[in-house]
Design a protein around this nucleic acid. Structure first.
Lengths: 217, 217, 217, 217
DNA sequence: AATGAATGAGCTTTCATTCAT
DNA sequence: AATGAATGAAAGCTCATTCAT
């Protein structure tokens, strides 16, 4: 022990793998996202996830209890977090016009989720939720319900303030979200339909429609 | 004797199995459709398909070579057939206005495919095509390509006749199909979004849009 | 009965299939021999046997209790019968020289069994007897033991008569049979070795050897 | 407490499984050889191989991709390796007399392959090659062709040097190999014929014959 | 006598999860 | 903290045998 302490400590002798310790979970989540999006939930093999992250199968279980928890973590890192930030921002943006706020939120949804690899999670959930009820429940509670609540609160506020025409806020929220969901699905379907669509053009057109269509009077 | 008559029908010798050659394929296809739509391709166990059709695992293999062929047969019975009939009708409807013909075809797509259990196959393909290339190929050749060709031929004819404004027929066809595809997906997603949408209202609105939007001049 | 006799008997109205009634078992045995020889016992599917004989799977079970009995019947028709005839002939040939008789018997074995499709049964037995004890027992009792007894009786008789040099008749019988067995195996092995050998030349040489080698003095 | 001490060694925690990476492949190959030889290729169940090696079904697949590869590995370990060594030795033995070299090689074939459990593989191949073309191909390429090439090269060299009478080297090679092959088959046939033969005597006699028969002049 | 639909045990292969090292 | 060997429950598919027609 004493001998050890006297050693010259040559410029942090950390072996390379130790330095990455903190990065591990993120690397695993990134690998998992890629594979879940590519192959779906059931068809993704944890061994592949581990290999892609450069670790062994066993290591994965040090960080995540099981496949389901890994998936939840992926959703949390890639979607729930974005929603959380959005919630704070909306709460803090009482002075901004609702029309403007809605625009901002939809755009952020697009840039931070829909236009990223994470959009594939929507496809996955749609396809496999039925086979994994616990995952469905989780996704519904953490993503769909919160996202819907967030947007509909803006719509509701806009109506109260006379900024928007009076409509059913829940229905309107669904109308607002549908096209973005469609875009996410298109991005991950093999269907040639999707590949032809230019998402940015689609989104701009759509947002303009929203602006006009929702204006009061 | 009299006593016998009162007995609860002595167990109806109930044969170990019943011979129903003609009905079997349809029963199996129906069971398969249910399960494929419900659980997806990979997660559907052939034993469950058989049980739901009231037969044993082995029987299924008397009628379908393997899982893939069973799936193809399901697609053929529920989608390809409809397209086939539509092709004949379009070929025979040279005198009808293209606008009218397009309306009819989209409506038929809705009633004969999208509004039935078969619409779940679209979701399945979108989600799992990547994992089963041969199925993807089959679906693309037999459904997507043929369906697109059929609709775009009408659009093309309408433009040639001056009935429609001159647009790229392929692009327009994709625009025409997207909403119906979306409806099919909604119908099978656990997402509460979709369940709220009233498909008939949606479709009517959409068709009216098409009528106005495509008119020449 | 009388009525029947008076019927006009219009040129034998027998439907075609009925005429073959007696041929059925033989057709099935022939088909079974082909397939057993080609694929082995376990790998031969009864459905294929039936199809090759031009009947249905069920029909096969009208004539043979099960796969094992079918196989036994094949062996009986193609090998046991030959041995039976040989036994009678040997019993009736008390006046023929043993050398001559031996020659005749080995030749007959060659022409009636070894040079026919039936030789493949030897390969099959050698390869699969271990997995089907009842078949092994049957083959041993009906073919090997009887065949050996027959040949060794001739050898024994020859020694008693001073025609053959005094040797252990059982050992000599094994020496006599080995080459013919080898020929049978060669004929059905994929090994190029066998295909090069000209069986008739081989057999002649061998028989000449037997003639000289066994002569007394 | 004292009572406890008398208990029969409290169940030796006996781990559910043991980690023996290095020994496993060999244990599995040995178990597989036993069963393949005993039952043939098709009739050998991988679960039995695993159980005999003291592991579970799944473990086998950690070491061998599938049944076919397991079989190939068995052939490689038990036959191909021997041929490989023989090839090196022949190449290095330019100064030895061909007669001597041939003797050595045939003897080694006997001791290293034919007199071991591996000889049963020859029977297996003969019986089942027809049903498993890929295995037939492999065995032909790796064993038959290489073995034949090796021996015929010695014969050819012997003829060139005037040591052997001029004969067709390929034919002579087949003649040389046939009896050893026969011995291998005998060793694994249930046929009582074979069990009587004393292989060593047989082989000695045979080698003497080769010596005399092939001598030039 | 003939058919062929129906059965179900059996076999190969996959993969989430555990745990000795 | 990290590894990867080991497990065993599925799931797809085959085929000898049965039996209603």
């Amino acid at each position: 022990m004493i001998a050890d302490m006297n050693q010259p400590m040559p410029a942090e002798p950390k072996p390379r793998w130790e330095r990455r310790k903190d990065a591990r979970p993120h690397e695993l989540l990134s690998a998992a996202l890629d594979l879940f999006v590519d192959r779906g939930y059931a068809a993704t093999r944890l061994e592949d996830v581990a290999r892609r992250a450069g670790v062994s199968k066993g290591t994965l279980y040090l960080y995540f209890e099981n496949k389901q928890e890994l998936f939840k973590a992926v959703v949390r890192e890639n979607i729930v977090q974005v929603i959380g930030r959005a919630e704070s921002d909306v709460a803090a943006a009482d002075d901004v016009s609702c029309s403007e706020l809605l625009r901002t939120m939809l755009r952020r949804w697009w840039t931070d989720v829909a236009a990223t690899r994470a959009s594939g999670l929507a496809k996955l959930i749609m396809a496999e939720a039925g086979n994994f009820p616990e995952i469905a429940q989780f996704y519904n509670d953490e993503v769909i319900a919160r996202g819907h609540a967030l947007l509909s609160s803006i719509v509701r506020r806009g109506i109260e303030r006379g900024e928007f025409a009076p409509v059913d806020p829940d229905v309107m929220t669904r109308v607002l979200t549908a096209p973005v969901i469609m875009l996410m699905l298109w991005a991950h379907s093999f269907d040639p339909c999707g590949s032809q669509v230019e998402p940015d053009v689609f989104l701009d057109t759509y947002l303009e429609l929203v602006r006009r269509g929702m204006a009061a009077g």
